[in-house]
């Protein structure tokens, strides 16, 4: 069965998937940062955050145009670091990177230096250890050059626009 692709909103520039607990200072500071004056978001651009509490986001598969450049990311996935350990988190990150290539992965939460070493090995580009560290990574968020034609967004998830 062929599912028609939903029409793209031309003003949408970046989609961020927030995976895990959103009731945390990391989330609150992130939202405060992207809607505040220091936000890396261009004023005319609309960013959206899609939430996934169950640990595995439903990311759209890149179709059509292949990803030529490492800079061309389809979106950013923010994984919250659980307090009981990172084994399950790393499993989900590895599976997502394998089955849905083309996304930038970020972790947010307290992690020990040994855990951060592993997180980096699993292909996570940024780890936010402190809720106020978001601003240090503005280059990552400003860097995204998503090609709208290669993505179709699952709108069934809750959406927040900044």
């Amino acid at each position: 069965m062929i599912t028609p692709t939903q029409p793209e909103d031309p003003t949408t520039k970046l989609t961020i998937w927030w995976v895990g607990n959103s009731n945390s200072p990391w989330h609150d500071e992130f939202v405060r940062w992207i809607i505040g004056p220091d936000s890396p978001r261009p004023t005319e651009a609309k960013w959206e955050i899609l939430y996934s509490e169950d640990g595995s986001p439903s990311l759209p598969r890149a179709t059509g145009q292949p990803i030529h450049s490492p800079k061309c990311k389809l979106g950013i996935v923010v994984w919250t670091v659980p307090s009981h350990g990172i084994a399950e988190l790393l499993k989900h990150i590895a599976a997502t990177r394998r089955t849905r290539p083309g996304y930038a992965h970020v972790t947010a939460g307290l992690a020990s230096p040994a855990e951060r070493l592993l997180i980096s090995e699993f292909g996570v580009v940024a780890h936010i250890q402190h809720p106020k560290d978001w601003a240090s990574w503005s280059a990552l968020f400003a860097d995204q050059k998503k090609t709208a034609r290669s993505i179709s967004v699952n709108r069934n998830q809750s959406t927040v626009t900044g």
């Binding site: 350990g85 084994a87 590895a94 592993l118 090995e121």
Partner: peptide
Amino acid sequence: EAAKLDEEIAKF
């Protein structure tokens, strides 16, 4: 949890 982490790392 530590054993599971070792397993995930080895698998990866």
